[in-house]
Design a protein around this nucleic acid. Sequence first.
DNA 1: AAGTTTATACGAAACATTTCGTAAGTCAAA
DNA 2: TTTGACTTACGAAATGTTTCGTATAAACTT
Lengths: 129, 129
Amino acid sequence: MSHSQIPRPTDSELEIMQILWQHGPASVRFVNDLLSEKRDVGYTTTLKLLQIMYEKGLVTRDDTNRTHVYQAAFKESDMQQRLLDQFVDTAFRGSAVKMVMQALGNHRASRAELDEIKALIEKLEKDKE
Amino acid sequence: MSHSQIPRPTDSELEIMQILWQHGPASVRFVNDLLSEKRDVGYTTTLKLLQIMYEKGLVTRDDTNRTHVYQAAFKESDMQQRLLDQFVDTAFRGSAVKMVMQALGNHRASRAELDEIKALIEKLEKDKE
DNA sequence: AAGTTTATACGAAACATTTCGTAAGTCAAA
DNA sequence: TTTGACTTACGAAATGTTTCGTATAAACTT
């Protein structure tokens, strides 16, 4: 199927995307086993979700074998960027900086992580010269 | 009505919250006028949404006059923090730092903004000592 | 080969969200 | 006082999401 525009995944769909990104191509069984560790979910529910995600173009699948193997259709970082843009727009009126400040202010980041961010900022500022 | 737990606002609801945060307490008419500038939406649609938001506890209202006046039930920053936590969990597997890096990497922030963030980081690092 | 387990497909119920039509009341102007 | 504009309340259609039961076929076990 062809898709002019990929829709934003729902929360449930994103949960499954996470599994596919973390573990690579996987069967319904595999996805459902991992999903079941976190919450109560039936096998056919997971199957149906993956089928819908396939129709939406969120995942691809290999159905040469009886057990189909699903795979994320997008890189995690690309999807994150899209979700981030959307989130900044709706929750922070488009201000990524405000969002960053809020995230740093209340999430306890380690010193190493803070240093990493600081280094990125300095690199960005250098690029600006 | 009493509420044990306030649900996450939907996208449409958040759009209305933004208006209430930006302009303060407002009538359905006022909200709908602003909303209509961006997209096509009927008056009773906006009314219904505000009524539902009232039932959910997202807004309060003053109904002493015929024209009810609605008001956000939460500070914008509090809501942003809640949405942010949720977003980081679902989209970045809990890593606020990764999210920040991605936001800074792809959003063009001004030098002044970058400096502001750097200052915050240095303050946080000082607090860590 | 017969029975058990495992797979997909599909329909539909249950639930949530979005949208709006219609009814009924209030208010102000003609 | 009648008319018209404006208001809230409410029901319900339209759409999207989540869940699972059932049917059917394939593969494995004994």
